[in-house]
Design a binder for these strands. Structure first.
Lengths: 201, 201, 201, 201
DNA sequence: TATGAATGAGTCTTCATTCAT
DNA sequence: CATGAATGAAGACTCATTCAT
């Protein structure tokens, strides 16, 4: 017997899937509850049964957008190999994620814009970045400790790297031709690695 | 005698100033024409006398946000000194701009989000980035030509640098504590410069 | 259990009744949606639930005004008696209709005026006249065939008769005193019948 | 020196010509003062200098539409010839008028519709019909007096004739194909004349 | 639980009219 | 006399939310 809980979970997912799609294509503000109703195949009443308001749906979608699995990335920290290797692997992983994320970028930037006016949204996004930063900082710290990387502020550097990739994603979003996304996982990070790595004489 | 043209110019500026402020604080979608009316001190009719619609105001504000003076930056290309110097000066200049830009960032990200659905907006933003890229590419090319920089793809590198600063600005926008903006004009670019510069031994 | 359909039908009627009244008293253009809201006892939202726009309501009212039962009149064609009798009965019937129609005449003339700019309206009105013409033409044709009427163009004559009554209705509408509506169903048609009928010597 | 009066007269005519055109094409309600401004080539201020309001323009246009020269028709009454001849000449004249009037018919029917709510408009239109009726009544009376026409109610008959032509004009306006306007000046009136005329044998 | 008809405050936009120059 | 910028009341329409069934 598919417990109530399961049905409820299914309904919520249906609604959020629909909302995500509608928000992405029409924009959050322009999206109407009726659009979500139609897209979800449910009824108006059902939406309001599972979510208190449009705002509640927005927040739930926000969480789906900015909270995803980083376990794979986090596991990297414990991997064998040089720090450069790990850094590259991490970046390659992140670039993969961006690619999967592509369709949701419009939504992501809407949330970024909304962050200016909503603490809840700001916190969700900040949490996402902090997790990313923590992983990258750890990798860089390992490199410094092992003498592979120049001494430097590991967190600051991590943030610079993340910023660079966020920026590239944004440029790519605005005009794909600006960015050669197929080499994204190598060229930019190598520029940084070149400056980061201790000269092997 | 303040010629007609002048009055017209004043009115348009009044309206756009008001719109910019309202869009920034309330968000473009949530902004009501009445807010702009109140903020501008003009009347509803006056707004519609000078601008066909809310959308026309949005576009006009867009242009004000993304089209500004880069002459100063463009002049840098012709400056004396090493390419590293020029690069740093350019970055310092850009960081200054971001600081002046601070209040408008929410608006800027709204436009970025809107870019997904509007060619006009996309083009305005792309134009802005292309101008920036052109300057930076030129500086890097000069560095390569003079043997100061490693051989590399100058445009790709320029875009990476711009992306990094765009990303930093975004992080700073979302959570100022994430980014030490006071050293923004030095630390990140130096990491890149380290990798870019030919070893002087 | 008043099936859904019934409620829908009731609501539409409520709205169209209200619209008809408001259009008639205030004029179509001067009529506000809020007037219809008030007159109907429904809410703004309800109006827009059942009709897409004011224009949709106008069209629906148009149909109610110009599409009505002519079955009774059409049945006349098959009646016993002389063609003169049938013609008179038909006219008497039509005059009755005009009387019932009295209150809607302002609306009817608004539609006539609108016909100049709307194909849909024009077609609705033309359809109405064509049905009337067809009946009358048939009656006159019968009269000619039986030798009761002079040979003539039956459709042209039918149109002349209809035109005369339409014109009388218009004069009556503009200034009731101009037309003795109580003898409308006899005097004018007899003038025509006198000229139409073959002399019985 | 073209006295002030002349300029004033010119301006008024310019405005009313423009208004007539705009009212006819857009409809009185949908016509904007700005349309008249543009069409007239004058300025907004000028319109309000010569006419107090849009309503004043509407009334002035009304007068131009419904008050025109009937002197020619009125002169007919004194003409030589049989009453039948005079009647036919009168009808031919009227049909000519309708043809000239063609472009203004949409406007005329708007005024008819407005008559329901405006005494002033009603009176203007009634005045027009009364003049026409008076002429026609006189002609018919002459025919009765001379023994050419059957004894009948001359005014009632006159009104029937006018109504018929008004109705034909309306049908023609709504759907030109319904009415063979080229024979309008003969066929319909002859049907009536046939019934009206005393048998000569 | 689920439905979808109904609500009505809120929004953009229009346009007759005014008035400083 | 003439101009056209400015006013602001009014009106069509939208849409998040509610609630009787």
């Amino acid at each position: 017997m598919p417990a109530k809980k399961e049905i409820e979970e299914t309904r919520r997912r249906q609604i959020l899937d629909a909302a995500e799609k509608v928000f992405t294509t029409r924009g959050i503000d322009k999206a109407r509850m009726d659009d979500i109703v139609q897209e979800s195949g449910l009824s108006k009443g059902a939406l309001y049964w599972y979510f208190k308001s449009k705002d509640a749906i927005i927040r739930a979608v926000l969480d789906r957008v900015f909270i995803y699995e980083m376990r794979e990335a986090e596991a990297l920290v414990l991997t064998e190999g040089s720090s450069s290797e790990r850094l590259k692997t991490f970046v390659a992983f992140a670039v993969q994620e961006y690619k999967r994320f592509e369709k949701m970028l419009p939504l992501a930037y809407e949330f970024v814009a909304l962050a200016a006016r909503s603490k809840a949204i700001r916190e969700a996004i900040v949490g996402y970045f902090k997790r990313y930063t923590a992983i990258l900082t750890e990798i860089i710290q390992q490199g410094i400790d092992s003498g592979e990387f120049q001494p430097c502020d590991p967190e600051g550097t991590a943030i610079s790297v993340i910023a660079m990739y966020e920026g590239l994603a944004m440029l790519w979003f605005i005009e794909p031709e600006l960015v050669d996304w197929d080499h994204m996982d190598t060229a930019p990070i190598e520029t940084i690695l070149a400056g980061l790595t201790v000269e092997k004489s």
